[in-house]
Simulated scan of single mutants.
Amino acid sequence: MSRAVAVCHGPFGRVSIYDLDRPMVVHAHREAHLIFFLEGSQGLVTVNDQTVRVDPFMGVAVNPWEPHNFQPEQPGSFGLFLVVYLKPEWLAKQTMSAPGSLVFPSSELVVTRELEAWRDQAIDMLLSRHSELNLAPVLMALALASSEPIESHLASSLLHLTSESALDRRVLRARRLLEQYPSHEGALVRVAREAGLSRAHFFKLFREQVGVTPTIFANTVRLDAALDRIVLSNDPVTSISHSLGFSGQSVFTRFFTAHMGMAPRDYRRVLRTVGLPQSQASHV
């Protein structure tokens, strides 16, 4: 079964080393996403219908909200990967630019000597026993070496497309409901009904305006809420499962594993944080 080898959360987002032997469902992240192969069985990542083989020479870059999935090249065989998730607002703060001003021009990411050096430094830090991990400069260097700045007028245009003011009021209402109530599974259907639209029509409108299907958006919100509870609280997994509206812990564990590759207890077992509030009691 897939497992987490090292996990660190911080203001930058999160960075992990995963040993993966199972596929994940199609999903998306709010963060910019980088994947590097380390050893073992190589992997296949599909981003917007383009499949990239993750190997010693090629990594994967995924822009925020781009749907993607992962599967091992040899089913059932373990592969070790460095997986990075960087918050757009953190990247913008580091570069003194608008969120979204750095983009990955292609999901195919050639592993240059520069990228290899920063990747290896991140791995060394994650696997070290030091209590203080100064990961931020290393992760910023990885992001800059993987991305390209876009022109200011294009950045403004892209920001306009994703801003709340640009969304249909019915889509905006549905999105806000999902953001506020991650466990409210009926939000989209209810808003569609109140708007006088069929479920199919409303879901199409949502995907056109938000960029992902309502299901992927809802799952992303729910997963983020779960990660926040796992990282920032000492709540047991059973409590987290109940608060997020899952019918049982086993259902929550299947959901988490399908999106993250490993069970929530395994993720929490190796978790470290940098610059985040610490819970006062041990995890259960």
Rank of each mutant, 00 (worst) to 15 (best):
P137F: 10
F57P: 00
P75T: 12
I123M: 01
Q74A: 10
L158C: 10
D124N: 09
E73H: 08
L82H: 04
E73G: 09
I123L: 01
W65H: 08
L80W: 05
R53G: 08
A143Q: 10
A92R: 00
L161E: 15
A136D: 15
L82M: 08
P64C: 05
A145V: 09
Q50R: 13
R53Y: 11
V60E: 00
D124G: 05
P64T: 13
L109I: 02
V54M: 02
E114L: 04
K93V: 10
S107Q: 11
G100L: 02
L142M: 15
P75S: 06
A136N: 08
L127P: 02
D55A: 06
F78D: 07
F104Y: 12
L159G: 13
M140R: 07
L142F: 10
L126G: 02
E132K: 10
E132Q: 13
P149R: 12
V111G: 01
G76Q: 11
E114P: 00
F81V: 02
W118C: 07
H68N: 04
S131I: 13
V138C: 10
G100Q: 05
L115K: 02
G59V: 12
L86H: 04
G100N: 04
F57S: 14
H130G: 09
V54E: 03
P99E: 08
K87I: 09
P67A: 05
P75E: 10
M58D: 05
F81K: 01
N69V: 05
S107V: 04
T162V: 14
T112V: 01
P149Y: 12
L126N: 03
P105V: 11
H160N: 15
T162P: 00
A155T: 15
L102W: 11
H153K: 09
M140F: 12
W118N: 13
D120F: 06
L135I: 14
I150A: 08
L82F: 03
V60D: 00
P64M: 03
A98T: 15
V54I: 14
L115V: 06
P75W: 09
L86I: 09
P88I: 04
A136F: 02
S163C: 12
A61E: 05
T95F: 07
R119F: 04
P67H: 05
V84I: 12
S146D: 11
L159S: 15
T95N: 06
I150G: 03
Q50F: 04
F104S: 03
F78K: 08
V52L: 00
E151Y: 07
T51S: 03
Q71N: 04
V83H: 04
S131G: 14
V60Y: 00
L102C: 07
E66D: 14
N63S: 07
A155D: 15
P149S: 15
L154D: 13
T95W: 07
L161D: 15
R113T: 15
A117E: 14
L127H: 06
L161W: 12
R119T: 12
L82G: 06
V84K: 03
S147G: 05
P149E: 13
I150P: 01
S107Y: 01
Q50L: 10
P56R: 02
I150K: 04
W90H: 02
F57E: 12
P99Q: 05
H160P: 02
S163I: 11
